[in-house]
Amino acid sequence: MSGLRILVGCKRVIDYAVKVRVRPDKLGVVTEGVKHSMNPFDEIAVEEAVRLKEKKLASEIIVASCGPQQNQETLRTALAMGADKAIHVLVEDKDYSNLQPIHVSKLLAKIAAEEKVDIVLLGKQAIDDDCNQTGQMLAAILDWPQGTFASKVVKKDGSLDVTREVDGGLETINIKLPAVITTDLRLNEPRYATLPNIMKAKKKPLTTKKPSDYGVEIKSSHQVLSVEDPPTREAGQKVESVDLLVAKLKEAGFMKS
């Protein structure tokens, strides 16, 4: 069997440990000078692709990212984890605030077709916009089946068995190749890039493209009217003992007295 060709989408986001601050103009959050890293779910997607390659099920891993110049750091990280080549779709700053899952999925669809990939692996959601849309939209545009929120992927002949994290537990579906998979947290534990691999990644091919190369126009049908801080909770109180806590809960009717 010739190996599968896998495309992995990677988003550069504000690091998950950073406490975000709303901008004074209330149209977004402060991103300048803030630590960014690869979206955690995308790291899981890269890891899964690399594991498929290590099992000799995949032949080539292409990573792609849409966004400003700095996204190349994200792509280098993916290359250092074991991806073979990278495509950076450079989105100018003026367009980047309008870039939405619908645009990214259109761009990835073009790349997937051009690179003749069999599987697209994406994170289930980006931790900045929390949309959870791109994988599903990409599957729709390509007219491929989707295996969302995957916690286990098993290759079959011409198809994949995907175990999905659903509300009441787990479910397993079979999807025919080519297919789109989105990763959930428990799919794997992503590896750290080692220094030698980081050095090697610098020599791996990275192509820069523009959205117009793929005929995709970044025009958003959504207009952000405001971004605001969530309502803050007033400080509570410390109770000294279980007795007192239970008394409070009884008073409020949460327990029988």
Partner: peptide, 23 residues
Amino acid sequence: ASATGKGLIPRIAAKLDVSPISE
């Protein structure tokens, strides 16, 4: 916005060429 809804709505939206709104 359950596992089923989240899996389905963006797929429908892409087919209609519109931008979905999550949660």
